[in-house]
Each structure stands twice: as structure tokens, then as C-alpha cells.
């Protein structure tokens, strides 16, 4: 747009100026008979230099100072934030590690307690078994003794009963040895049969 704008405005000025200039009698900008035309440049230069000094020495350094302060502040804050983040990261890593450690410790303790309990239970079971074994053995022994005793008694009873029955039936006694033998043989035969069965 700019390359077109300047020539267009120049052309328009050149087109407008003759008509206007005829009416006004020349451009006031080129009226160098007026001392104000040259003095405006002199005053303009003075004003420009004063403005330059005021801006460069007083006004602009203030802006630069504020911008600089803000930049260092933001930089410092960012630095602090970065430090805080690193600290937080290490703290989180520490926490995770401690969690893992606690977990592992707990597992080990559980396993240990479990093993101890198992061992104790096994030991108890073993002693109990041994005690039972001995008791069973003793009981079996007693049973065996009682049985032999009982069996001995059965023979005795059978002999006495047989004697009594023979006495009743026959009316006279019988030789105890014969009865004993007969009972013994009968019992032996029965025992053998029951063993077969």
C-alpha cells in the first residue's frame, strides 16, 4: 500500500496545489520571507535536543529500570519454582522408596511369622502324634493284656461250666484234666475258625 500511497498523495497535492496556491498566493511553507519559517527549524532543533536529553537521561531509564526489575523478579521466581520442583521431586522419590521399603519389610515379617507359626504347629503336631502314639501303644498293650486275661478267664469259666454241666447231667464228677483239654481244643478250633473268617 505504501509504495502506491505516497505517489498518489503527491499527485493529488500537485493537482490541488495550483488551484489553492492561486487563491492563497503561494505555499506558506515556502515563504522564507517570513522569519518564522527559518526560526521554526531553529526552535525545533532546540526542542528536539531538549526532548532527546529528557527522554534518554530521565524518562526512558525509568521504563528500562522497571522492565529490568520485573525481568529479574520473574527470573528469580522461576528459579525458586524450579528449586521447589526439584525438592518436591526428590521428596516424592524418597516417599516412593520408603513405601517400597516398608512394603518389602512387611512382606518379610509376614513370611517370617508365617514360617514360625508353621514350624510351631508342626512341632506341636509332632509331639502330639508322639504322645498319641505312645498312648495308643500303651492302650494296645493294655488291650492285649486284658484280652489275654479275658481269654484265660473264658477258658477257666468254660472249664468250670463244663464241669458243672457234666456233674449235673451225669451226676458224678469228671476228671478236670479231661475237661480242660476238651475246652482247650474246642477254643483253639473256634479261634482258628474266627481267624479264618
Amino acid at each position: 500500500m505504501r509504495p502506491l500511497l505516497a505517489p498518489a498523495i503527491l499527485a493529488l497535492t500537485l493537482f490541488l496545489l495550483p488551484a489553492a496556491a492561486r487563491a492563497a498566493g503561494g505555499m506558506p511553507q515556502l515563504d522564507f520571507a517570513n522569519p518564522l519559517t527559518t526560526y521554526q527549524v531553529v526552535w525545533g532543533a532546540v526542542i528536539f535536543v531538549i526532548l532527546y536529553l529528557l527522554y534518554s537521561r530521565w524518562a526512558l531509564p525509568q521504563v528500562a529500570d522497571v522492565l529490568q526489575t520485573r525481568e529479574t523478579r520473574i527470573e528469580g521466581d522461576l528459579e525458586a519454582a524450579r528449586g521447589a520442583k526439584t525438592a518436591a521431586d526428590t521428596a516424592i522419590a524418597e516417599l516412593v522408596r520408603a513405601g517400597h521399603e516398608a512394603h518389602a519389610g512387611a512382606q518379610a515379617q509376614i513370611a517370617e511369622a508365617l514360617a514360625a507359626a508353621k514350624a510351631e504347629a508342626a512341632a506341636q503336631a509332632a509331639t502330639l502324634n508322639a504322645k498319641l502314639e505312645t498312648e495308643i501303644a500303651a492302650a494296645e498293650q493294655r488291650i492285649g493284656a486284658a484280652r489275654t486275661a479275658a481269654l484265660g478267664a473264658v477258658q477257666q469259666v468254660a472249664v468250670e461250666a463244663a464241669q458243672a454241666m457234666v456233674t449235673r447231667l451225669v451226676g458224678t464228677g469228671i476228671a478236670p484234666a479231661a475237661v480242660e483239654q476238651a475246652v482247650a481244643s474246642t477254643l483253639a478250633a473256634r479261634r482258628a475258625r474266627s481267624q479264618e473268617a
Binding site: 490541488l16 492563497a24 506558506p28 511553507q29 515563504d31
Partner: peptide, 11 residues
């Protein structure tokens, strides 16, 4: 007449 340039006169 239109005095288009009078505005540029210095005072």
C-alpha cells in the same frame, strides 16, 4: 474561494 493553505501559515 477556498484558502486550503492558510492553515499552514505560521503565527
Amino acid at each position: 474561494t477556498i484558502d486550503a493553505l492558510g492553515q499552514f501559515t505560521l503565527h
